[in-house]
Design a protein around this nucleic acid. Structure first.
Lengths: 229, 229
DNA sequence: CGCGGCTTTGATGTTCATCAAGTAAAGTGG
DNA sequence: CCACTTTACTTGATGAACATCAAAGCCGCG
């Protein structure tokens, strides 16, 4: 279960970026009442439908943003710290529209939502920085979704592999943090076809597979497939 | 070409909602420097890549939000007044990420972007209302896209017809404001299959077709198809 | 009045989902 | 810690859904 962990605002990577606009005295108030929570891989951080009471952002880890309809799960985005996924719809209404789960051990920093609301009202610079961040998140999700939509099965799988290599792990060898089924839920194809495509890439010596460990061998070819060449 | 038209802030439907939070003296300044522009059906309002200099919102009409990649056009959303589509990515960077074109004769109200920025910084209530609106737009786009993704060809076409009937025209008989090709670009299928599906709905007496005029005859059946029954 | 774009229908082939069946891995209770 | 159960992974065969190609009629516009 999610448990509170020690506070260390001073060392938080997000501090500079997030509180850029916040005055010292405000920052103190925020730091004082914030709560950090740890989540193990697989644990749910936000459940769609829940009432919004906290302003949650990712301090460390990796999460998936998704929605479940009639037992069908659709992954909307994979987000890392600074993507502030929880921000996405919290100003729309009183309840979350999406679920968020940790796909790697993660730490969130939680603030009373009212506090953030007050801050937005009283601190224009902060409001603007929240606006910008929300805008960036939306853009990323919409553009990624459009990019995926344009591609066929192979291009979509290639896209996901490049996504993890280039924007999450910054390495051509990494452990895939999600299952084949989740890849399928992300790109809108079936699990079997994701597996088939990965096997094909392996046979064509574009990647090496060892369970969850993926190594990209021929990156240029993978890029070509992703761009649909 | 887009031309300036007479100013009538007093009668603007958007005024109450948009300027809810704006003080009288601020409102005056805004009204004074705003510019309204008219666009004929088919005219482009925003070109992806253009520099963002104005804060544009739809006063009247209907527009499509889209993106062109390698000569392939993908429609992201169909928006009516109060959807404030132009707001979507204007806080992300200096240039538009998406294009917007009128699909019906439309009127926009344009404000200097700097003015809005100042307002956000000085008026917290306004900032919060912009945040809320942006959040609603993102949610709508993301949720609609997820809904479409879940469906097969017939369900997607049904979804689009119900979308126009229930959220745009509030009537079961309407003139489709976009071409068959654009419907295809919206739902991610081919023009031919959109046409085939419409013909099938006609043969099954679910709708009547007269060129661009569509009449929904058996709405319940259309809803079932949309929900994928 | 002819040209180009939009619409329509048919024929064909590709892509992908579904079904089936088996192996490997991971979690669970005695 | 091991038998047991469940979940994830994998491959193949089949059929359905959809794209592509082709051809022709229609409409609006210069």
């Amino acid at each position: 279960m999610a448990k509170k962990i020690a506070c260390d605002c001073e060392n938080c990577d997000l501090q500079a970026l997030f509180y850029d606009s916040v005055m010292a005295n405000e920052l103190e108030a925020i730091c004082y009442q914030k709560a950090e929570k740890g989540f193990k891989k697989g644990e749910r951080i936000i459940q769609a439908g829940d009432q919004i009471q906290e302003f949650i952002y990712l301090k460390k880890g990796l999460v998936k943003l998704y929605k479940t309809t009639d037992d069908v799960e659709q992954i909307i985005s994979i987000a890392k710290p600074l993507d502030f996924v929880s921000m996405l719809s919290i100003f729309s209404g009183n309840n979350y529209n999406y679920s968020v789960s940790a796909i790697e051990d993660s730490i969130t920093c939680n603030l009373e939502f009212d506090l953030i609301n007050d801050l937005i009202k009283t601190n224009g610079t902060f409001a603007k920085s929240v606006l910008k961040r929300m805008s960036l998140i939306s853009d990323k999700i919409i553009l990624d979704n459009l990019a995926i939509r344009r591609k066929h099965l192979k291009g979509r799988v290639a896209f996901v592999l490049l996504y993890f290599a280039d924007t999450i792990y910054f390495s051509d060898e990494f452990e895939l943090p999600i299952s084949r089924r989740e890849v399928a839920e992300f790109i809108g194809m079936t699990t079997e076809n994701v597996i088939r495509t990965l096997s094909e890439f392996r046979k064509d010596e574009i990647i090496k597979i060892n369970g969850k460990i993926i190594e990209i061998v021929d990156k240029q070819k993978l890029k070509n497939i992703s761009s649909y060449g």
